[in-house]
Design a protein around this nucleic acid. Structure first.
Lengths: 145, 145
DNA sequence: CCATTTATATAAGTCGGTGATGTAATGGAG
DNA sequence: CTCCATTACATCACCGACTTATATAAATGG
Protein backbone atom coordinates (compact mmCIF):
# COMPACT_ATOMS: atom_id res chain seq x y z
CA UNK A 1 0.00 0.00 0.00
CA UNK A 2 1.09 3.52 -0.70
CA UNK A 3 1.16 5.30 2.63
CA UNK A 4 2.10 8.63 1.05
CA UNK A 5 -1.07 9.20 -0.94
CA UNK A 6 -3.76 10.63 1.36
CA UNK A 7 -7.18 9.19 0.65
CA UNK A 8 -10.62 10.65 1.07
CA UNK A 9 -11.17 9.07 4.47
CA UNK A 10 -8.02 10.70 5.74
CA UNK A 11 -9.12 14.04 4.31
CA UNK A 12 -12.48 13.67 5.99
CA UNK A 13 -10.82 13.08 9.34
CA UNK A 14 -8.53 16.04 8.91
CA UNK A 15 -11.46 18.27 7.96
CA UNK A 16 -13.22 17.42 11.17
CA UNK A 17 -10.09 18.21 13.12
CA UNK A 18 -9.93 21.55 11.34
CA UNK A 19 -13.51 22.23 12.38
CA UNK A 20 -12.69 21.26 15.95
CA UNK A 21 -9.61 23.49 15.94
CA UNK A 22 -11.57 26.44 14.56
CA UNK A 23 -14.28 25.91 17.15
CA UNK A 24 -11.78 26.02 20.00
CA UNK A 25 -9.77 28.89 18.55
CA UNK A 26 -12.39 31.24 17.14
CA UNK A 27 -14.77 30.82 20.02
CA UNK A 28 -16.90 33.87 20.62
CA UNK A 29 -18.17 34.56 24.12
CA UNK A 30 -21.13 36.74 23.25
CA UNK A 31 -22.68 34.84 20.33
CA UNK A 32 -22.99 31.14 19.76
CA UNK A 33 -22.03 29.39 16.55
CA UNK A 34 -25.50 29.36 15.04
CA UNK A 35 -26.13 33.07 15.68
CA UNK A 36 -22.80 33.98 14.07
CA UNK A 37 -23.52 31.73 11.12
CA UNK A 38 -26.93 33.35 10.67
CA UNK A 39 -25.48 36.85 10.77
CA UNK A 40 -22.74 35.85 8.34
CA UNK A 41 -25.29 34.34 5.98
CA UNK A 42 -27.41 37.50 6.07
CA UNK A 43 -24.40 39.69 5.33
CA UNK A 44 -23.21 37.46 2.50
CA UNK A 45 -26.50 36.59 0.84
CA UNK A 46 -28.97 39.26 1.90
CA UNK A 47 -32.32 39.21 3.77
CA UNK A 48 -33.89 35.89 4.67
CA UNK A 49 -37.10 34.69 6.26
CA UNK A 50 -37.02 33.21 9.73
CA UNK A 51 -38.12 29.83 8.41
CA UNK A 52 -35.41 29.86 5.73
CA UNK A 53 -32.78 30.54 8.38
CA UNK A 54 -34.12 27.78 10.59
CA UNK A 55 -33.92 25.28 7.73
CA UNK A 56 -30.41 26.43 6.76
CA UNK A 57 -29.10 25.96 10.27
CA UNK A 58 -31.18 22.87 10.94
CA UNK A 59 -32.72 24.57 13.95
CA UNK A 60 -36.36 24.72 14.99
CA UNK A 61 -38.42 27.71 13.96
CA UNK A 62 -38.99 28.88 17.58
CA UNK A 63 -35.29 28.51 18.22
CA UNK A 64 -34.49 30.70 15.22
CA UNK A 65 -37.09 33.24 16.33
CA UNK A 66 -35.20 33.49 19.61
CA UNK A 67 -31.83 33.87 17.91
CA UNK A 68 -33.13 36.57 15.58
CA UNK A 69 -34.75 38.27 18.56
CA UNK A 70 -31.45 38.43 20.45
CA UNK A 71 -29.57 39.63 17.38
CA UNK A 72 -32.21 42.31 16.92
CA UNK A 73 -32.04 43.36 20.58
CA UNK A 74 -28.29 43.81 20.09
CA UNK A 75 -28.93 45.95 17.04
CA UNK A 76 -27.19 43.58 14.61
CA UNK A 77 -30.25 42.70 12.51
CA UNK A 78 -33.60 44.23 11.74
CA UNK A 79 -37.03 42.77 11.03
CA UNK A 80 -39.29 43.98 8.25
CA UNK A 81 -42.54 42.61 6.81
CA UNK A 82 -42.10 40.80 3.51
CA UNK A 83 -43.82 43.00 0.88
CA UNK A 84 -44.73 39.90 -1.14
CA UNK A 85 -46.21 37.91 1.77
CA UNK A 86 -47.85 39.49 4.78
CA UNK A 87 -47.23 36.44 6.94
CA UNK A 88 -43.47 36.45 6.50
CA UNK A 89 -40.78 38.51 8.23
CA UNK A 90 -37.59 39.42 6.41
CA UNK A 91 -34.50 39.53 8.58
CA UNK A 92 -31.71 41.79 7.32
CA UNK A 93 -28.37 42.85 8.81
CA UNK A 94 -27.99 46.40 10.09
CA UNK A 95 -24.87 48.45 9.44
CA UNK A 96 -23.71 47.49 12.93
CA UNK A 97 -24.24 43.83 12.02
CA UNK A 98 -22.19 44.19 8.86
CA UNK A 99 -19.44 45.97 10.78
CA UNK A 100 -19.44 43.25 13.43
CA UNK A 101 -18.98 40.52 10.83
CA UNK A 102 -16.30 42.52 9.06
CA UNK A 103 -14.31 42.94 12.28
CA UNK A 104 -14.71 39.31 13.17
CA UNK A 105 -13.47 38.27 9.74
CA UNK A 106 -10.45 40.51 10.17
CA UNK A 107 -9.58 38.99 13.55
CA UNK A 108 -10.03 35.51 12.14
CA UNK A 109 -7.80 36.30 9.16
CA UNK A 110 -5.06 37.50 11.48
CA UNK A 111 -5.31 34.33 13.53
CA UNK A 112 -5.16 32.06 10.50
CA UNK A 113 -2.35 34.12 9.01
CA UNK A 114 -0.31 33.82 12.20
CA UNK A 115 -0.80 30.11 12.16
CA UNK A 116 0.06 29.76 8.49
CA UNK A 117 3.30 31.66 8.76
CA UNK A 118 4.62 28.93 11.04
CA UNK A 119 4.06 26.28 8.37
CA UNK A 120 6.65 25.20 5.82
CA UNK A 121 6.37 26.94 2.47
CA UNK A 122 4.97 23.94 0.59
CA UNK A 123 2.17 23.49 3.14
CA UNK A 124 1.35 27.16 2.85
CA UNK A 125 1.28 26.79 -0.93
CA UNK A 126 -0.97 23.72 -0.73
CA UNK A 127 -3.46 25.50 1.51
CA UNK A 128 -3.73 28.57 -0.68
CA UNK A 129 -4.05 26.35 -3.74
CA UNK A 130 -6.93 24.51 -2.07
CA UNK A 131 -8.90 27.67 -1.25
CA UNK A 132 -11.16 27.48 -4.27
CA UNK A 133 -11.71 23.75 -3.84
CA UNK A 134 -12.63 24.22 -0.17
CA UNK A 135 -15.13 26.89 -1.12
CA UNK A 136 -16.63 24.60 -3.75
CA UNK A 137 -16.98 21.90 -1.10
CA UNK A 138 -19.34 24.05 0.93
CA UNK A 139 -21.58 25.15 -1.90
CA UNK A 140 -24.21 22.65 -1.04
CA UNK A 141 -26.24 21.21 -3.86
CA UNK A 142 -28.30 19.04 -1.56
CA UNK A 143 -31.43 20.01 -3.39
CA UNK A 144 -30.45 17.41 -5.98
CA UNK A 145 -32.22 14.14 -5.26
CA UNK B 1 -3.74 43.50 -8.23
CA UNK B 2 -3.93 39.82 -9.06
CA UNK B 3 -7.46 38.75 -8.36
CA UNK B 4 -6.68 35.13 -9.10
CA UNK B 5 -4.28 34.53 -6.24
CA UNK B 6 -6.26 33.70 -3.08
CA UNK B 7 -4.87 35.42 -0.02
CA UNK B 8 -4.83 34.36 3.61
CA UNK B 9 -7.93 36.37 4.51
CA UNK B 10 -9.88 34.58 1.81
CA UNK B 11 -8.61 31.23 3.04
CA UNK B 12 -9.65 32.11 6.58
CA UNK B 13 -13.15 32.94 5.40
CA UNK B 14 -13.43 29.73 3.45
CA UNK B 15 -12.20 27.70 6.40
CA UNK B 16 -14.96 29.09 8.58
CA UNK B 17 -17.50 28.24 5.92
CA UNK B 18 -16.12 24.72 5.83
CA UNK B 19 -16.56 24.50 9.59
CA UNK B 20 -20.11 25.79 9.27
CA UNK B 21 -20.87 23.29 6.51
CA UNK B 22 -19.47 20.40 8.53
CA UNK B 23 -21.46 21.49 11.56
CA UNK B 24 -24.71 21.50 9.59
CA UNK B 25 -23.95 18.31 7.71
CA UNK B 26 -22.32 16.04 10.27
CA UNK B 27 -24.67 17.07 13.02
CA UNK B 28 -25.20 14.32 15.56
CA UNK B 29 -28.49 14.20 17.42
CA UNK B 30 -27.34 12.23 20.43
CA UNK B 31 -24.01 13.89 21.25
CA UNK B 32 -23.02 17.51 21.07
CA UNK B 33 -19.84 18.73 19.40
CA UNK B 34 -17.78 18.92 22.53
CA UNK B 35 -18.67 15.40 23.67
CA UNK B 36 -17.76 13.99 20.26
CA UNK B 37 -14.51 15.93 20.23
CA UNK B 38 -13.66 14.57 23.68
CA UNK B 39 -14.38 11.00 22.67
CA UNK B 40 -12.36 11.45 19.50
CA UNK B 41 -9.45 12.88 21.44
CA UNK B 42 -9.52 9.97 23.88
CA UNK B 43 -9.54 7.42 21.06
CA UNK B 44 -6.74 9.16 19.19
CA UNK B 45 -4.46 10.14 22.05
CA UNK B 46 -5.34 7.86 24.95
CA UNK B 47 -6.61 8.43 28.51
CA UNK B 48 -6.83 11.96 29.84
CA UNK B 49 -7.72 13.61 33.13
CA UNK B 50 -10.98 15.53 33.43
CA UNK B 51 -9.13 18.79 33.94
CA UNK B 52 -6.96 18.19 30.86
CA UNK B 53 -10.09 17.61 28.77
CA UNK B 54 -11.74 20.74 30.14
CA UNK B 55 -8.69 22.84 29.19
CA UNK B 56 -8.49 21.25 25.74
CA UNK B 57 -12.11 22.05 24.95
CA UNK B 58 -12.07 25.37 26.74
CA UNK B 59 -14.93 24.20 28.92
CA UNK B 60 -15.33 24.51 32.67
CA UNK B 61 -14.30 21.58 34.81
CA UNK B 62 -17.82 20.90 36.13
CA UNK B 63 -19.07 21.04 32.56
CA UNK B 64 -16.52 18.47 31.51
CA UNK B 65 -17.42 16.28 34.52
CA UNK B 66 -20.99 16.28 33.21
CA UNK B 67 -19.94 15.41 29.67
CA UNK B 68 -17.74 12.56 30.89
CA UNK B 69 -20.58 11.39 33.12
CA UNK B 70 -23.00 11.19 30.21
CA UNK B 71 -20.46 9.45 28.01
CA UNK B 72 -19.84 6.98 30.82
CA UNK B 73 -23.56 6.39 31.36
CA UNK B 74 -23.78 5.51 27.66
CA UNK B 75 -20.90 3.08 28.05
CA UNK B 76 -18.57 4.96 25.70
CA UNK B 77 -15.90 5.87 28.25
CA UNK B 78 -14.74 4.55 31.60
CA UNK B 79 -13.32 6.25 34.67
CA UNK B 80 -10.34 4.86 36.58
CA UNK B 81 -8.27 6.36 39.38
CA UNK B 82 -4.91 7.67 38.25
CA UNK B 83 -2.31 5.29 39.77
CA UNK B 84 0.17 8.15 40.01
CA UNK B 85 -2.19 10.61 41.73
CA UNK B 86 -5.07 9.55 43.93
CA UNK B 87 -6.94 12.81 43.37
CA UNK B 88 -7.15 12.46 39.61
CA UNK B 89 -9.49 10.40 37.44
CA UNK B 90 -8.31 9.01 34.15
CA UNK B 91 -10.99 8.90 31.46
CA UNK B 92 -10.48 6.27 28.78
CA UNK B 93 -12.61 5.08 25.87
CA UNK B 94 -14.30 1.70 26.10
CA UNK B 95 -14.40 -0.68 23.18
CA UNK B 96 -17.91 0.57 22.47
CA UNK B 97 -16.55 4.13 22.44
CA UNK B 98 -13.83 3.19 19.97
CA UNK B 99 -16.36 1.40 17.79
CA UNK B 100 -18.68 4.43 17.92
CA UNK B 101 -15.91 6.75 16.75
CA UNK B 102 -14.84 4.31 14.06
CA UNK B 103 -18.39 4.10 12.68
CA UNK B 104 -18.83 7.85 12.81
CA UNK B 105 -15.58 8.34 10.95
CA UNK B 106 -16.73 5.90 8.31
CA UNK B 107 -20.05 7.71 7.83
CA UNK B 108 -18.26 11.02 7.67
CA UNK B 109 -15.79 9.71 5.10
CA UNK B 110 -18.65 8.50 2.92
CA UNK B 111 -20.33 11.89 3.13
CA UNK B 112 -17.17 13.80 2.27
CA UNK B 113 -16.34 11.33 -0.48
CA UNK B 114 -19.80 11.78 -2.02
CA UNK B 115 -19.31 15.51 -1.96
CA UNK B 116 -15.82 15.33 -3.42
CA UNK B 117 -16.80 13.14 -6.33
CA UNK B 118 -19.02 15.96 -7.57
CA UNK B 119 -16.06 18.33 -7.77
CA UNK B 120 -13.90 18.84 -10.86
CA UNK B 121 -10.75 16.77 -10.91
CA UNK B 122 -8.38 19.65 -10.20
CA UNK B 123 -10.35 20.67 -7.10
CA UNK B 124 -10.26 17.07 -5.92
CA UNK B 125 -6.51 17.00 -6.50
CA UNK B 126 -6.01 20.29 -4.64
CA UNK B 127 -7.96 19.04 -1.62
CA UNK B 128 -6.06 15.78 -1.37
CA UNK B 129 -2.77 17.63 -1.81
CA UNK B 130 -3.72 19.92 1.07
CA UNK B 131 -4.51 17.09 3.49
CA UNK B 132 -1.13 17.16 5.20
CA UNK B 133 -1.10 20.95 5.37
CA UNK B 134 -4.58 21.02 6.92
CA UNK B 135 -3.47 18.50 9.53
CA UNK B 136 -0.41 20.62 10.29
CA UNK B 137 -2.66 23.63 10.75
CA UNK B 138 -4.48 22.00 13.64
CA UNK B 139 -1.40 20.79 15.50
CA UNK B 140 -1.51 23.66 17.89
CA UNK B 141 1.75 24.96 19.26
CA UNK B 142 0.07 27.69 21.25
CA UNK B 143 2.25 26.86 24.22
CA UNK B 144 4.90 29.00 22.54
CA UNK B 145 4.76 32.54 23.90
C1' DC C 1 0.77 16.20 61.74
C1' DC C 2 -1.34 20.42 60.26
C1' DA C 3 -1.93 23.89 56.41
C1' DT C 4 -2.08 24.66 51.71
C1' DT C 5 -2.72 23.38 47.15
C1' DT C 6 -4.67 20.42 43.61
C1' DA C 7 -8.27 17.25 41.28
C1' DT C 8 -12.74 16.18 41.01
C1' DA C 9 -17.63 16.10 42.35
C1' DT C 10 -21.92 18.34 43.75
C1' DA C 11 -25.44 22.23 44.11
C1' DA C 12 -28.10 26.17 42.63
C1' DG C 13 -29.20 29.16 39.14
C1' DT C 14 -29.37 30.81 34.34
C1' DC C 15 -29.74 30.46 29.46
C1' DG C 16 -30.93 28.59 25.16
C1' DG C 17 -33.16 24.98 23.02
C1' DT C 18 -37.51 22.01 21.63
C1' DG C 19 -42.52 20.64 20.94
C1' DA C 20 -47.11 22.21 21.29
C1' DT C 21 -50.11 25.75 20.38
C1' DG C 22 -52.04 30.38 19.10
C1' DT C 23 -52.66 34.19 15.65
C1' DA C 24 -52.56 36.35 11.34
C1' DA C 25 -52.19 36.14 6.34
C1' DT C 26 -52.51 33.55 1.90
C1' DG C 27 -54.83 30.89 -1.68
C1' DG C 28 -58.07 27.84 -3.80
C1' DA C 29 -63.02 25.89 -4.09
C1' DG C 30 -67.58 26.80 -4.32
C1' DC D 1 -67.13 37.04 -1.83
C1' DT D 2 -67.04 33.30 1.87
C1' DC D 3 -65.15 29.38 3.86
C1' DC D 4 -61.47 26.38 4.91
C1' DA D 5 -56.93 24.43 4.68
C1' DT D 6 -52.24 25.87 4.68
C1' DT D 7 -48.33 28.67 5.79
C1' DA D 8 -45.29 31.92 8.61
C1' DC D 9 -44.20 33.48 12.72
C1' DA D 10 -44.64 34.25 17.81
C1' DT D 11 -45.57 32.63 22.50
C1' DC D 12 -45.71 29.18 26.27
C1' DA D 13 -44.14 25.53 29.20
C1' DC D 14 -40.65 22.53 29.88
C1' DC D 15 -36.04 20.41 29.72
C1' DG D 16 -31.19 19.85 29.38
C1' DA D 17 -26.61 21.67 29.54
C1' DC D 18 -23.64 25.01 31.02
C1' DT D 19 -21.88 28.40 34.55
C1' DT D 20 -20.09 29.92 39.37
C1' DA D 21 -19.58 28.73 44.03
C1' DT D 22 -18.60 25.28 47.22
C1' DA D 23 -17.57 20.65 49.24
C1' DT D 24 -14.64 16.49 49.49
C1' DA D 25 -10.55 13.95 49.07
C1' DA D 26 -5.71 13.45 48.17
C1' DA D 27 -1.07 15.18 47.72
C1' DT D 28 2.69 18.21 49.37
C1' DG D 29 5.62 21.13 52.35
C1' DG D 30 6.86 22.78 56.74
Amino acid sequence: METDAPDVAELAGVLEQVASWLRRTLRNEEWNTVALSVLDELVREGPRRVTELAALERASQPGMTGIVGRLQAAGLVGRAPDPTDGRATLVAPTNAGRRYIRERHAQRAVMVADRITTLPADDRRALLDATRALAALTHTTEGAA
